[in-house]
Every structure is written in structure tokens, then in C-alpha cells.
Design a protein around this nucleic acid. Structure first.
Lengths: 196, 196
DNA sequence: TATTTTAAATCAAACGTTTGAACAACAGTT
DNA sequence: AACTGTTGTTCAAACGTTTGATTTAAAATA
């Protein structure tokens, strides 16, 4: 196998398996079989199954870093929130496994939660909080709003939509065709809900 | 050990363990040890670990059935939605483990997902959808609203607040003292967002 | 007596990890 | 060009441990 194909193969094959079954739900044999490599390669490249899981999570959560750019943009506060919602939707569409790791670590945390997941989530929430506070000082929003409750409400509306998909697929159309309508719908409720 | 104390002890001890680590994260020996009973009691009463997990999930999700009563009440549509939010908050406060099973099954589904979790969630969403549709016909809400997107947005605001707690506890005050304020906050955003 | 609970032992299967040999590519030496 | 040692990679096999489940016989309880 050429160069570091093997290492890449392992990570690529591990993503959907870890996402679907969690760290404890997959065996090294299953991982190695899916990547079509010898099972000792996992210890060789990652120091063990947990090391591989950590590498996968690091790669998955790296994309959240881009959200921090939103706060620095020279646009309206509400446009920043819309940009956050749009980025969230396109992120989940591009990577269908990210939300699984997200909620799996929130619900059944491994050692990676404190080192990788929690810091990443805190950064996003902090960015949204700062954006909101800035909007408050510009007198855009009603001043009896709680910053944390407000931004978590916004994040909840869009994230919960994707989280619920496995259970409500027969009840609600979750196709990407509706994404644009969904985004405008959420921003519509949010805007009317928080503006003066 | 008297009567069915043993059976009850096993379930009671299993709830926090399964909630924290998932089905695959706990061994029968750990479960029996936590319940302070012999390990053979799990096979005796539940036919094995998965049977115990199924029994725990059935018990946990039984409380969701009470939500269906809301739709039949002779109250305003918005009051029904507020009742749903209030019931959700008090449910999570009374049982801190329910949300873990909820999201754990949504993210890393076991055999119980199709039989227990999915039907329970669908019933709640269907109840909210019916409530909303009824409100639409009474011309309470803006008529360009999508029913599914609207009720999932409401559910997302309150559920995501609790889901995010492990990651944002240092950033946001999640104490029950704030629950009343949180409920009014969410209903405030939602009401302004959907009313004509 | 019948049911429930215990402790201990046993089972096959699966687990994550380690091993030592084999292999290829390459550099330095002769 | 031929040999040698090094380095990084891959492999099959085996390691010791733990897993979930079952069984046994004795004890406790009703």
C-alpha cells in the first residue's frame, strides 16, 4: 500500500462506523476489516483504538473552527446569526456524521469530550454570545432577553431538526431541497422573536 | 431480598449506568455489582443484558405518553404549546437520565430504537403537529408557516438547552431556579415568531 | 414445598494489544 | 555494481483478558 494510504484508509473507514455505533460499539477487527488493512495497523498508526477515535474526532471537529470568523465580519448582527445557521446546515450536509459524534459525546462522553468536544462547543456558544451582546449594544434587540437562552434557542432550532431526522423521517421531509426554506423559516421566527 | 426488590434494584441501578455509558459501555458484572445482587439475577429476571436495557427504556419512555393528553385539553393552542414546554422541563428535572437515552438512541440506535424510541418520538411530534394544525384553522398563526418546521423549532429550543448542559455548564447557568424564566423566554420568542 | 437468591464455576466467543518475521525502499560502503 | 544496514510498513498468529450467558448446588425466604 503506497505512502500513507493505509493510515488514511483507516480513518475514512472508521468515521461511519464510530458515528453509527460509538467507541464501544465497534471492534478493532471490524475497523480493520472495513479499511481492508491488517488489524495491527490501528495500534501501529494510532497507538490503539482510542487513539484512532481521538484522531477521527479531531478531524471532525476541526471544521467548527471556521465559525469563529463570522463574529469578525462587517455585517449586521442578524446576518451573522443567519450565517451561523447556514454554515450549520451546509456543515451537516457535507458531513453527515458530525452530528452523531456531537451528540454521542454529549450523551455518552469518552475521554475525548473534555479535550476535544467541550472546547469546540464552548467556542461556538461563546462566539454566538459575543455576537448577541454586540447586537444588544447597538439596540437591535429587546433588552429583556437573556443572551444565553437566546443563542441556545437559535442553535437548538437548527440542530434539533437534524438530530430528530432518524425518528421523524416518515413524518417530515428532511431533503436538502427544503434547506433554504427551513433556514428562512427559522430566521423568520427568531427575528420576530428577538427584535424590538 | 423481599418480593421483587431485586428486580427493582437492578433496574434502578442500571438507569444511571446505561444512561452514562450506553448499552455497550456497561458489563453485566458492573450492573450486578451496582445493584448489589448476584450477576445471574439479570438473566433470571430479564433474560440477559439487552432485556434489562429494553426494560429500562420502556420504563423511561412511558412518561412521554402523558403528553398526548395535552392535545385534548380545552385550552388555547399557544397554552398547549406552553404546557408541552413546561412538561418537558419538569420531565427532565424529575428524570435526569431520560434525555441521555433519548439522544443516545437517536445517535447510536440499538434494537430498541425502532420498537420503543421511534414510536414514542413520533407520537409527540404528531401531537404537536395536530395541535399546530388546529391552531392554524383557528387563524391564530401566520399561514405561511410550515407546521413541521415550526413544532420542531419549538421542541429544539427546549430540548437543546438540556442537551448542551454538559458542554456549557461553565458558560451558562442551568440551575432549576432559572427554569421559569427559561420557559417564558422560549414561549416569548416562539409566540412573537408565529403569531399573525 | 415452592420460589427466590446466593456464590462459584464454567463456557465459547470476542476483545484490544503485542509479537516476530517478512517485505520494500533507500543510503552508505565497498 | 554488489553488498550491508537502516527504516518504515505490513502481515499472520498468538497473547492474556474480559465479555455475556449458563449452570450448579446450597441457602434463604415465604
Amino acid at each position: 500500500m503506497a505512502d500513507n494510504d493505509c493510515r488514511e484508509n483507516i480513518i475514512t473507514a472508521a468515521i461511519p462506523l464510530f458515528a453509527a455505533k460509538g467507541l464501544n460499539g465497534v471492534s478493532v477487527r471490524e475497523l480493520a476489516g472495513a479499511a481492508d488493512v491488517n488489524l495491527s495497523m490501528i495500534s501501529y498508526y494510532f497507538g490503539g483504538k482510542e487513539g484512532l477515535y481521538s484522531a477521527v474526532l479531531t478531524e471532525q471537529f476541526a471544521v467548527l473552527g471556521k465559525l469563529e470568523e463570522i463574529e469578525q465580519m462587517e455585517i449586521d448582527t442578524l446576518q451573522k446569526f443567519e450565517l451561523y445557521v447556514r454554515a450549520t446546515v451546509s456543515r451537516y450536509r457535507k458531513n453527515p456524521y458530525l452530528l452523531r459524534f456531537y451528540t454521542s459525546e454529549l450523551t455518552n462522553p469518552t475521554a475525548c469530550f473534555e479535550t476535544i468536544v467541550k472546547p469546540a462547543i464552548k467556542k461556538v456558544v461563546q462566539m454566538l454570545l459575543d455576537t448577541f451582546t454586540n447586537g444588544l449594544s447597538h439596540e437591535k434587540f429587546r433588552d429583556n432577553l437573556d443572551p444565553a437562552d437566546t443563542v441556545i434557542a437559535l442553535a437548538g432550532m437548527i440542530n434539533f431538526y437534524f438530530l430528530l431526522e432518524p425518528a421523524t423521517a416518515e413524518l417530515v421531509d428532511h431533503s436538502p431541497d427544503r434547506d433554504e426554506k427551513l433556514i428562512r423559516h427559522i430566521m423568520d421566527i427568531f427575528t420576530r422573536g428577538v427584535l424590538k
